[in-house]
Amino acid sequence: MRHRMQGFGSFALFIGVPVIPLIVFWFIPMFVSLWLSFTDWDYISPEIHYVQLDNYVTVLKSPDFLGALWNTFFFAFWTTVPTLIIGFLLALLLRVQIKGRPLFKALIFSPWVTPMVAMSIVWSWIYEPKIGLLNQFLGWLQLPQPEWLQSSTFAMWAVIIVTVWKSVGWCMIFYCDALGKISDEFIDVCKLEGATIWQCIRKLYLPLVSPITLFLAVTLIISAMQAYDQIQVMTQGGPAGSTRTLLYLYYQMAFQQFNMGQATAVAIILVIITAVISLIQFRLSKYWVHY
């Protein structure tokens, strides 16, 4: 009897207690969100009406949503792919045994540690069309000097550059570790067979780091879907909605317009998209990931 009580006590202590915040701030809100997306709640009025799929229909038809959807995909793709490629190339460069390797790693990684808000402020100054560092540099190279954050064609790229800049270090660390774990024997085999660097990368490094690539691709896309800080600081979704992603649209609808029903509908769509992308990645991984 005492033993069983102890078993229950352990369960209550180890699972029961810590699971409470998890339920209150994760599980319940998710279901409530789903439910809210079928209502017309506006945060103020006490009355809540069930509106079936109206929110979804309205949202899916609105040009704002479609623009944001496109922006989200654009942003996710152009942050994830360059981050992966640059991170991998940096790790490849850092494979060579040279002095000061840890310092290089630390320097390249350091942007990850800084607050996105602070860095977005610094970058918005760098992007300043007339006196900003970037355009002064481009001018010195006799290249065109776009109005970065004020231009609807370049604002998105400006946001993407900051995002990539901040996360390549993170990516590099994982690739460094994965490359470090490749046995020297494999590299010897490549040397013996006279493989070129390109052959080495294609036949050896890429397949052997593929599990890390999958992990990074999935997590980078999930975090791209949730990018907010840099957009809020640098462009507030503008100019002309050119940097408004689904998440930013959700924020505007929920916390500026208090249109909770449509906002949560956007959130649910975002969840579905994220889930589908992750699922597709895992499905496809069978063909290119080698454990």
Binding site: V24, P29, M30, S33, L36, A254, L270
Partner: peptide, 14 residues
């Protein structure tokens, strides 16, 4: 797997 943002509205109310 899900974006944390989904939970913001209800969490705010809670």
């Amino acid at each position: 797997m899900l974006p944390a943002a989904v939970t913001y509205v209800p969490s705010y109310v809670i």
